[in-house]
Nucleic acid binder design. Structure first.
Ligand code: FES
Ligand code: FES
Lengths: 143, 143
DNA sequence: TGATAAAAAGACGTTGACCTCTTTTATGAG
DNA sequence: CTCATAAAAGAGGTCAACGTCTTTTTATCA
């Protein structure tokens, strides 16, 4: 249950852009990379992908940068995961024997299936916006 | 929550050796590799490691092979995980920001911590033997 | 003792995640 | 229109997980 670097970078960057956009119209890669300590060129690829997928908007040139759009905060986490890690890890058997299947369970299946389904449910029902609306905003200092 | 190939190979191989040893004193890599469809030479490394860690016994030469010992079935799954994958994934932040810490939670922490602790508890309390004693032995066909 | 069988050891190859660097393209200011 | 700026694009590098192959060591038995 440790996700890819790309997933963490993508999620944290989106949260950063959402929050900065409350006061400032655009955010540049350099600023995100500096503040979140993410390798700049690697982040560029991730944000380019997020823009292509219309999760955020981007503008080139002077005074350009990235900004949120109407859909940004309603993106479910599982959609982000799909883009960065793929959804295989949610469908695959934990021992990588095949597609996870209760009718042909692997030795771990019955001990892990419920835990796993809870994780899938959380990822499906939680949106980027939910993370920000959260009562507990401690995390903001950890974006 | 998909574990390394090495973990799956190690767990399934141990279960295979435990079950075969009920009727036959030793099991050779070739037999395990054939029956569990695991790359033979790669499996050799894993079983060598398991033998060095005294989780199973090994004998070289003609009629040699691997066998269980008194401790085999009481090995907790978390010990296997420690040997194959390391325990970092259980302590690290899901977004890889640092050691997971509720006082400085990452954006995902509060949505994932309980699920994660349940997984750790299961890995700590379940032994190789528990998997075999299980009432539900469907999984045997999937080892 | 010599032939043989099986694990141990270790060199080497492959692939994907992660990261860096350079060049190209788009856009706003003067 | 030209220049500066910032994203887009893409070539390339590193490293660990995964896998293959060959050689060495150890044990058995005729
Ligand atoms: S069959 Fe392996 S986890 Fe479901
Ligand atoms: S701080 Fe990130 S999962 Fe606990």
């Amino acid at each position: 249950m440790v996700f890819s670097k790309s997933f963490g970078y993508a999620l944290r960057s989106i949260l950063y852009v959402v929050m900065i956009n409350e006061n400032q119209s655009r955010v540049q890669i350099q600023e995100v990379a500096d503040n979140l300590q993410i390798p700049k060129h690697f982040l560029g690829k991730i944000m380019k992908m997020l823009a292509k997928e219309k999760i955020i908007d981007s503008v080139k040139g002077p005074f350009g940068g990235f900004s949120v759009n109407d859909g940004t905060t309603s993106i479910p986490l599982i959609r982000l995961m799909e883009l960065t890690d793929g959804l295989e890890q949610f469908q695959e058997c934990s021992l990588r024997l095949r597609k996870c299947n209760a009718d042909k369970p692997c030795p771990m299946h019955h001990r892990i299936a419920q835990n796993r389904n809870e994780l899938i449910a959380m990822f499906s029902s939680t949106t980027v916006g939910d993370l920000i609306k959260s009562d507990d905003k401690d995390f903001i200092y950890s974006i």
